[in-house]
């Protein structure tokens, strides 16, 4: 099912400040990104180029040209924000890659550069202290002509990214691992996880990035011969990376307007908690049309839309219980016959 954004939804999505863009004012996220880029430039001795692209993209660039199948579930309007049948708000910064690869078709000599594509991406997501509807991402692609890039280069890239985000000197107990992962736009894909100590003392594996070797079909689709061109591709969530670096447990703090918090979002020093306001809980008994609608991402997105500018007051939205109609006693209040999920 495809539904399209209204003009006001599109306007509010596009007017959201991109914290990774210095053009909109300084933010610690920019320093973290700069540290990662410098680390990779030094590792490989290659120059980098940053592309700040508008988040409105061709749906084909976001999905088809990156190897997603036409019936992939993430294309559904439940997860993607479509503007028209052919245009959407990018769901990942990789959406900028097909056009970038197209632009390299004329490169006939030696070529070796790091391309950096940061910015906001648009999802429909659950509401909790680590998720927002429009998180920041960066795609880091090293593209090389007349030279090989393989799994050992990818391994070195992952190590350099972890060291830049969580320097061992400040985080001596950080460990990382990579596990196999499938993406349409990579070969030998990996998921990069880090083992970190949370501010409350818990040790936890968290995903930091996804990466792989640039897939041959993606190169070929832009007219680049995979026998001549090779690439390393890595995509990282910048909100999570910054939260890990600074020890921040609530993603909303990154955009806080409170001066004591805002001042701390200008550097990479550990976050010092500013006295938190008490939270207020409200439990809602709802009737939905079907069990499929009892989905935290779908409900989270609807709640965010309903609250508009007040949405940042909502720290979390948790599903406590789902009961289908046949399980309910006949007298259940608010229950509608024929509806499968109730109260």
């Amino acid at each position: 099912m495809k539904t399209y954004l209204s003009l006001s939804q599109l306007n509010s999505a596009l007017s959201l400040r991109d914290l990774s863009d210095p053009g909109a004012g300084p933010h610690a996220m920019q320093q973290l990104l700069a540290d990662v880029v410098v680390a990779l430039e030094r590792l490989w001795g290659v120059p980098s180029r940053t592309h700040r692209l508008n988040p409105l993209v061709a749906t084909a660039d976001n999905y088809d040209r990156l190897g997603y199948s036409p019936d992939d579930v993430t294309r559904d309007s439940r997860y993607s924000r479509h503007v028209s049948p052919t245009v959407m708000l990018r769901s990942h910064t990789s959406a900028g890659i097909p056009a970038l690869l197209d632009s390299l078709r004329g490169e006939l000599g030696h070529y070796d550069e790091l391309h950096v594509l940061p910015g906001l991406v648009y999802r429909r997501d659950a509401i909790d202290r680590t998720h927002v509807g429009a998180p920041h991402q960066v795609d880091l692609w090293r593209l090389k002509a007349r030279g090989l890039l393989g799994p050992s280069d990818l391994q070195a890239m992952m190590a350099a990214v972890v060291e830049a985000v969580l320097p061992a000197a400040e985080n001596p107990d950080v460990q990382w691992r990579s596990t196999p992962a499938l993406h349409g736009y990579t070969a030998a894909g990996r998921q990069l996880d880090v083992l970190v100590t949370q501010p409350d003392g818990r040790r936890e594996w968290l995903e930091l990035a996804e990466c792989g070797l640039a897939a041959a079909p993606v190169l070929r689709c832009s007219g680049l011969d995979p026998r001549r061109w090779a690439g390393l591709a890595l995509g990282m969530g910048l909100d999570r990376a910054l939260m890990l670096r600074k020890g921040i447990t609530d993603i909303r703090l990154l955009r806080s307007g409170q001066p004591d918090v805002q001042a701390q979002m200008l550097n990479l020093a550990p976050y010092r908690p500013v006295s938190a306001m008490p939270d207020i809980r409200r439990d809602l008994s709802l009737v939905l049309d079907s069990g499929d609608d009892a989905d935290v991402e779908l409900l989270g997105d609807s709640a965010r839309t309903a609250l508009g500018a007040d949405a940042d007051v909502l720290a979390a939205l948790e599903v406590l219980a789902v009961t289908t109609t046949p399980e309910l006693p006949p007298a259940a209040s608010g229950c509608v016959p024929g509806r499968s999920t109730c109260c």
Binding site: A276, M277, I280, S285, D312, A316, V319, L320, A321
Partner: peptide, 24 residues
């Protein structure tokens, strides 16, 4: 279904009246 909203502004205290209006 039963859904819990956790309301917590980062910069001020929320009154019960405001919390109820957001809940509605």
């Amino acid at each position: 279904m039963l859904l819990r909203l956790v309301l917590q502004p980062l910069d001020r205290t929320l009154t019960d009246r405001e919390a109820n209006a957001l809940r509605d």
